[in-house]
């Protein structure tokens, strides 16, 4: 066992088996089985038991926020997950939005189960926006999926920020899928690459979970709404009623309050849903590889959204937006500009 793994095992040993994390875990909530619970996953690693549960974790890390004992689940468990060839391929594709665009085109003609599953969520896509002002001081980081699936959001945000800054759009992946799904080493390398690319620039990310992940990797990155709020940038008024989904990782680092603040400054009316950070069902590439569980998590989320009676859903994370589009009209805060 390497030193890293040893440390991660010690981290998991901090679990006192109290179960406080069970009912916040989306896969436990729908299966109600220890196998698919944080406590069960931790025990499986501690006992060296091969368990399906390690594969079914959405990696939303809600369990961490609930844990009185302070187990850093995400960091520790990521060392014990392994990506198979298909997942690795998916990760390589995400690293390069241009390739992602090309792959989606190929998938659109395929009827393999994975392709069909992707098509269920991704209805349209465009090549990533290439934009660069001379002497750009601000890097806009759309996040891999945003680049091609929500290009209009990227355009809106770019046009808005251009009013105040010289902007360059940086199309790439933050490495969260790798980190979460068994390629931790590669995730760390991606973080290093980004550190180089971000040097001397202000970086604004359009994807809140990417923002959160990059921050946890020690990168200096603003979330879009956070930037707008902290810099006091002027905002238009919008008469709209929305309910807000809190992307899970962004919740952990406290980013979601800025999304709400930005909405308030725009005069939007917010109707809160129950448990806004409950998983959307997408979980990075989870929706592709665990369709059955993902579907049931999405249904549970749908119930919470429907209960608000509001049709407009705000989501500042691309993968969540795809999953949430099953339950209403989804907007990024930048779409309202």
């Amino acid at each position: 066992m390497g030193v890293g793994l040893e440390l991660d095992k010690l981290e998991l040993d901090k679990c006192v088996h109290c179960g406080f994390c069970l009912e916040v875990c989306p896969t436990y909530v729908i299966t109600r089985s220890e196998v698919h619970s944080p406590r069960g996953r931790i025990l499986a690693v501690r006992l060296g038991v091969k368990s399906e549960g390690l594969e079914t974790c959405v990696f939303c890390r809600r369990c961490e926020a609930a844990c009185p004992s302070g187990v850093e689940y995400g960091k520790a468990i990521s060392s014990y997950r392994r990506a198979d060839a298909t997942k690795k391929l998916a990760h390589r594709i995400l690293e390069n939005p241009g390739l992602l665009y090309a792959s989606l085109k190929v998938y659109s003609r395929s009827s393999s189960p994975i392709a069909l599953r992707i098509k269920e969520f991704v209805k349209s896509y465009q090549p990533p926006l290439q934009y660069k002002d001379e002497n750009a001081e601000l890097l806009l980081f759309p996040g891999c999926l945003n680049s091609v699936v929500y290009r209009s959001t990227v355009e809106k945000a770019t046009n808005y920020l251009r009013r105040f800054y010289k902007v360059e759009v940086y199309n790439g992946c933050c490495g969260l899928p790798h980190y979460a799904e068994g390629e931790k080493e590669r995730a760390l390398k991606i973080a290093e690459k980004l550190r180089e690319a971000f040097k001397g620039k202000v970086v604004v990310s359009l994807s809140s979970n990417c923002t959160a992940h990059m921050r946890e990797m020690g990168l200096d990155v603003f979330d879009f709404a956070e930037f707008v709020v902290k810099k006091n940038l002027p905002l238009p008024q919008r008469e709209i009623t929305v309910t807000v989904h809190d992307p899970c990782h962004a919740s952990l680092v406290g980013l979601n309050k800025y999304t709400r603040e930005m909405l308030k400054r725009m005069g939007a009316k917010i109707v809160e849903m129950e448990d806004p950070s409950f998983e959307c069902g997408a979980g990075g590439t989870y929706f592709i590889f665990n369709p059955e569980l993902s579907r049931r998590i999405a249904e549970e989320k749908g119930r919470k959204v429907k209960a608000t009676g509001v049709e407009n859903i705000i989501s500042t994370n691309q993968a969540c937006s795809l999953a949430l589009s099953l339950h209403g009209k989804v907007f990024h805060v930048a779409d309202l500009l």
Binding site: V16, P68, S69
Partner: peptide, 10 residues
């Protein structure tokens, strides 16, 4: 408070 004991003891 019980599980917070995990902070000091396994």
């Amino acid at each position: 408070a019980f599980p917070a004991m995990g902070v000091v003891s396994r």
